[in-house]
Write a protein that binds this DNA or RNA. Structure first.
Lengths: 177, 177
DNA sequence: TTGGAATGTCAACAAGGCTGACTTAAACTG
DNA sequence: CAGTTTAAGTCAGCCTTGTTGACATTCCAA
């Protein structure tokens, strides 16, 4: 049920005869949403970035560590698709992580062309440090906003993804509850 | 009121005797939120990026155009704070925009050290083209998710910002409805 | 056995961040 | 008025992280 007290200030909804909900979204409301995304993403990355600045790593290293943690044993190609970068770009990051002993690359058993990626103990430790920093902010934001807001947050974000990314995202959600 | 059907799958809320709502947020739920942010931000920037790729501009030019549009007459220093980059970095972008006749820089009347920035007609046209592309996706996401979700989306994003960015954001919201 | 797929590597380049040093002009302040 | 601070711009150099293109290797599968 769409009720006034649940609606964003300024947005309007109306039920048609057929029961379909129409939304009147002004350009201004959408603009504000875009700005919110911009500022929030800055906050989202700020804490891990601060940690990484000390080490000689960047945000790209964090992303690699994150998704290797999320899907241990993933192949390079799979990681490429998730991250949406070229293999040359990923390779540069991956190479330093392997050299520094944070990531282990194992030749595939069934297909020996493939490399399966795992975090070493040291890699797991850094990954945890980075995500702890990121999660602290998210936890605080979730608590401030409340569970209804969080559900809406997730719904809008999912609807904003490219269809291919949405598939990747849902695949990652499976098998993790 | 917190009711089960409004809650995100897997999140739990409980009312204490004092009426305070407690949230039990697992690391896993927060991780999923982080991944949603990552994938959604990619989608968020994808459409304007495609347009900019043709021209010799990048995302940084888009951001400058966006905020000059949002706050016409803003000074360079103010824009610096909003974008969170160094003046050297902004200057490189701003210089090309001014040279190409998309942005006009006027010497301040009251303080002649300041430069006030405005979009030219051409600048306004490009800005509109870029935000139209971005807004189309946001409009679609907002419609899919519904007004309650949008309100929650905005609440979580705002709570995720650095306090200083939150101030900038709210200041921008004022005087625009 | 040959074609194609997966991976890795080299080179070159561009965008867009950063720091540091310095100039100019204007404004403020003692 | 002299000295300091502020706003803006510039130059030089560096780093990360993205890109393309070319090419080698390895291995699977038809």
């Amino acid at each position: 049920m769409v009720e006034a007290q649940h609606m964003h200030e300024g947005s309007e909804a109306r039920r048609t005869g057929s029961g379909e909900t129409l939304l009147y979204l002004t350009d201004e409301q959408l603009r504000q949403g875009a700005e919110a995304m911009f500022f929030a993403y800055r906050g989202f990355t700020a804490d891990p970035d601060r940690i990484l600045a000390g080490l000689s790593y960047g945000r790209a290293h964090h992303r690699a560590l994150h998704f290797i943690h999320a899907a241990p044993g993933t192949t390079v190609n799979n990681l490429l698709n998730i991250l949406g970068v070229t293999k040359q770009s990923l390779n540069r990051v991956l190479r330093t992580l392997i050299e520094d002993g944070l990531v282990e690359s194992r030749v595939g058993r069934v297909d020996k062309r493939e490399r399966h990626l795992f975090l070493t103990d040291a890699g797991g430790t850094l990954e945890r440090e980075l995500s702890d920093a990121q999660r602290a902010r998210m936890r605080s934001a979730y608590k401030q906003a409340g569970p209804e807001a969080v559900a809406g947050f997730r719904r809008v974000l999912e609807a904003m993804m490219d269809p291919e990314m949405q598939r990747q995202y849902r695949r990652l959600m499976e098998g993790r509850g």
